[in-house]
Amino acid sequence: MNAILECKGLTKSYGGKKALSDVNLTIERGRIVGLLGPNGSGKTTLIKLANALLTPTSGEIRIAGMKPGTGTKKIVSYLPERNYLNDWMRVHDIIGLFRDFYGDFRPDKAYDMLKRLNINPNDKLKTMSKGTKEKVQLILVMSREAELYLLDEPIGGVDPAARDYILETIISNYNPEATIIISTHLISDVEKILDHVIFIREGQVVLSSSVDEIREQGKSVDGLFREVFRC
């Protein structure tokens, strides 16, 4: 089995400022990976490069052996850190759009989750609160049977009760062959579901380790994070 995500010398600068600098990284399939780092450390940049929303300055990134493009978009389910929903559709319209374009989308799953979170499929996206829109986006993304899920700050904007439900949803909705990469700085909330963590600081990977290895050293991910990123 080839790696699901691979970076070689991946660098991205904006103007003169380096957001990612010579990142080398391999992520195997079947893991739940935490991409952890403070704000502005390059987490979003890395995820956007994997989605072909950004073009690398140098180096390369591959997903299941392919350069980001139409082939990878079919197998990657991406939750951006911002709201990408237009304001004129209703929830069931956007579900229709996902069903039209993604062969791996399961509408029944989406409608189930909407029901659990008390979201009416006939509501207009325009009238929804920020938190509800985030939930809708997460539902859309998790209703696909993708090979790689890239979740950028999936729990940042929602209340703790919904946060628990969302994490539960993430775990229960994915198959063991798939890989989930979750970017966040809310480590204690996600710690319990992670298999692997990557620490990223100022555009560089400072640690890539399995959670078991960290625990063998008698540490928690949260504790190690505080140690590594001490201000």
């Binding site: 989605n51 929303l53 082939g71 978009k73 079919k74 991406y78 990408y84 929903l85 374009f101 993604y102």
Partner: peptide, 13 residues
């Protein structure tokens, strides 16, 4: 703009 995050992650050339 922001909607591009959806449009450019659809499997479309």
């Amino acid at each position: 703009s922001d909607e591009g995050y959806l449009m450019f992650t659809l499997p479309v050339e």
